[in-house]
């Protein structure tokens, strides 16, 4: 079962990563019009969705303990999280191509939109680098757990990064983040009531 779940995650991640080959090979005009922009947006969105997915798993498991798939997926948070980081890395790479290299990149770096994305990326980088078993041991479970709460900070940065990018109302950002927000609030509510019961 564990293996099957892992296979499922790998399949989804690989398919998501390779998907853009399809419109590119079919030479869809709206994609070839500005391929770097298409890819930059695609991988940004995919990274965001995976990140939202991985942050939804824990609250989902707590709120719906009978839902087995969530429990099984929850054991592979690292794999999903690191995949999200890799998509973010590809996103950043295509942004560099799109914007026309490092000179242009540094000229725009002080813009809040770019800064938000870049900060989120560095947090994801820290999380990815410290995701190995060795790092967990080195840091010690407690410290590691605290460090990895940076994921919530990253989520907020990504939310604003995406919302700023939308032109007429942040409709898609709301669709993306609302489920995660609801799950997290429900979990906090659960924690709060549990605490009050125990005292």
């Amino acid at each position: 079962m564990r293996f099957l779940i892992k296979l499922l995650i790998w399949t989804v991640v690989l398919l998501a990563g390779l998907y853009p080959a399809y419109p590119l090979i079919r030479a869809e005009a709206s994609v070839l019009a500005d391929p770097a922009k298409y890819l930059l947006e695609y991988y940004g969105k995919t990274a965001t969705l995976l990140f939202i997915g991985v942050l939804s798993l824990s609250p989902f498991k707590i709120l719906f303990p009978k839902f087995e798939l969530a429990r099984d997926l929850n054991r592979h948070r690292r794999l999903i999280g690191v995949s999200s980081f890799f998509f973010a890395l590809i996103h950043l790479g295509f942004y560099l191509v799109y914007t026309g290299g490092f000179t242009a990149f540094f000229e725009d770096i002080e813009k809040p939109f770019v800064l938000l994305g870049l900060s989120a990326f560095f947090l994801l980088l820290i999380l990815a680098v410290t995701s190995t078993n060795r790092m967990v041991r080195m840091l010690g479970g407690k410290k590691w757990k605290w460090l990895h709460r940076l994921a919530y900070v990253a989520a907020i940065l990504i939310l604003f990064h995406q919302a700023l990018q939308e032109k007429a109302g942040a409709v898609q950002t709301v669709y993306f983040f609302a489920p995660l927000a609801v799950l997290q609030i429900m979990r906090m509510g659960r924690l709060f009531t549990a605490k009050h019961k125990s005292t």
Binding site: L32, A36, K37, T99, A104, E107
Partner: peptide, 12 residues
Amino acid sequence: PRWSQASERIIG
């Protein structure tokens, strides 16, 4: 506010 207007992508 989000990008420079100094240059532009050429469509196609």
